[in-house]
Write a protein that binds this DNA or RNA. Structure first.
Lengths: 141, 141
DNA sequence: CCGTATCCGTGATGATACTG
DNA sequence: CAGTATCATCACGGATACGG
């Protein structure tokens, strides 16, 4: 997800029908969503919350390497876009519970397809890279 | 796609099983792929090439707003990762043909799921944003 | 036609310190 | 516990000019 962005509409000018989801006069919705969720942490957070609800520091501990700041920004962004709900439990100390909304849950379905594809073709991509880097990189010591 | 990046592995520490594609000891493959493809142009290019092969300037004309530089970088990146093939036809003037590889074609399937989800829930996201911005933004004129 | 090289703005991310 | 504020950094992406 672009955590706070200003998108510029993209227009496809091909006058031929496209495989899916891309019509000839508007921006590609897949690109929008992929940019929305293509940041470093959003998918990770969504998947964790797909399992159960979490509290803030619980997420912070669960995701190795995320900064407090980025976790906050990511959660805010997901909340803003309707993927995640934020519930404050008035207690001492205060507890804030994050959970997926219905929308967020429906998003788990297509993102799972990507995840499964990624898991299945991980090696293929690595192999392709090795081939590419090996072929082109060796000319320049 | 992160057009030229240096990724740092992400480790999930939750000791509970995750919905899909995320195991407890490695980086999330979905996140990797989403970051790989979550840039401004990659999905657009893949979808165009999913229809048929294109020449460079043909793509440049088809995608309104892309710079020559970014088209080159995007294609190089997709080629490196094995999504796209690049074929030079020795002719005058020279023609370079870009096409999806088999790997690229298989990727159309999960990405289509995202595209369809995006098309279906476009409004929901916009509505959620309007609600969020309306509720929080109005307290600060 | 198909790029590469260079410069540069902006946004994304991290580190760190501070607060209700 | 759950953030916010501030500063620094670097990758992404655009504009432009040049080269094979």
């Amino acid at each position: 997800m672009s955590v706070g962005n200003t998108e510029v509409p993209v227009v496809i000018r091909a006058d031929i029908p496209l495989p899916i989801g891309v019509d000839d006069h508007r921006a590609c919705p897949a690109t929008d969503v992929l940019r929305r969720v293509g940041d470093r942490w959003s998918v990770l957070v969504v998947m964790l919350l797909g399992r159960r609800s979490y509290r803030f520091n619980e997420l912070h501990r669960a995701i190795e390497g995320i900064s407090q700041r980025m976790l906050t920004l990511t959660l805010r962004s997901l909340e803003r876009d309707g993927f995640v709900s934020r519930t404050v439990h008035p207690s001492v100390p205060p507890g804030v519970e994050y959970a997926l909304t219905d929308l967020g849950h429906t998003f788990l379905v297509p993102i799972s397809a990507v995840a499964e594809w990624a898991a299945a073709h991980d090696r293929d991509i690595d192999a392709a890279r090795a081939r590419y880097d090996g072929a082109a990189g060796s000319v320049n010591p």
